[in-house]
Amino acid sequence: MTALKLTGIGHAYLGRTVLDDIDLDVGRGEIVALVGPSGCGKSTLAHIAAGLTESRAGSLSGSYAQHAMIFQEPALMPWSTASGNIDYVLRLAGLKRTDRAARIAEVAAEVALQPDDLDKYPVELSGGMRQRVAIARALAVRPDFIYFDEPFAALDVALRRRMQNLVIETCADGRLSGLFITHDLSEAARIAHRIAVLDTHGRGILGDRRLDGTPGARSEGDLFDWVQHATRSDPIFRHIYDVDERQIA
C-alpha cells in the first residue's frame, strides 16, 4: 500500500529543467529520506508532492488523509504566540475552539513544550524552541503523512540530534509516513526506513537503499559503518556531497 506515489514528475524554472522523470513512492508507515547534493531540486520535489508547486509533467497520487509540512525555517507567524501558531493550523483544519485548546496542550506535551513557552512570541524563543513549535504545529493536525523539508539544517549538532530523536519517537508507532528531505546522509540513516538518492541535475532517482532495522533501534556504530560504506563504495551516493554554488536551489 503506498501513501504517496510520484510518476514521471518534471519541473522547469525559468525555462531551465530542474526535475525530469522522477518516480518515487512512499509506503504506508514508511519514512523515506531523499538525499542529493544541494541545488539538485529536492525541496522543489517535496513542494510538488505537497501541492505547493505545480509540476510541469507527470502525475502524483496520495492516499493519505491529512498531510503536514515542516520547513527549513520554522515559518512561525511572528505576531502570534506559540499556541496561537498551533491554533492557526487547527482552525484551518476546522476544529472547534474547545477542542483546539485541548489539542494544543496535548501536542505541546508531546514535544516537551512547557505551558509558559506556549504564551511566548517567536522572538522570545530560541531557534531550537521555534523548530519545536513548528514540529508541534505539524503534529497538531494529526497528519498521517509529513513532509520534512530539510527541517534541521539550520540547527547546531546537539539540537539537531534532539530534534531527530523527537521525529523518530513520534514516527515510531508506524501510523505516520513521511518524505524527509536532507543533504546529510547520517541524518537520513538515523531517521528513515529507506534512502532514495536524487540525481545531481534532477534527472531521475538514481536508486534507493533500505536500511536494516527500524529507526531508533539502530546503534550509532552500525549507522556510522553504514554511512562510511555507502559514501566509499556505493556508486549512487558518490556525488551527494558535491557542491556547485552557482546552481540555484
Binding site: A50, L52, A68, M69, F71, L92, A93, Y147
Partner: peptide
C-alpha cells in the same frame, strides 16, 4: 507557503 501547506 506554510498556510498553503496546511490547507488555507
Amino acid at each position: 507557503r506554510m498556510a498553503e501547506a496546511f490547507g488555507a
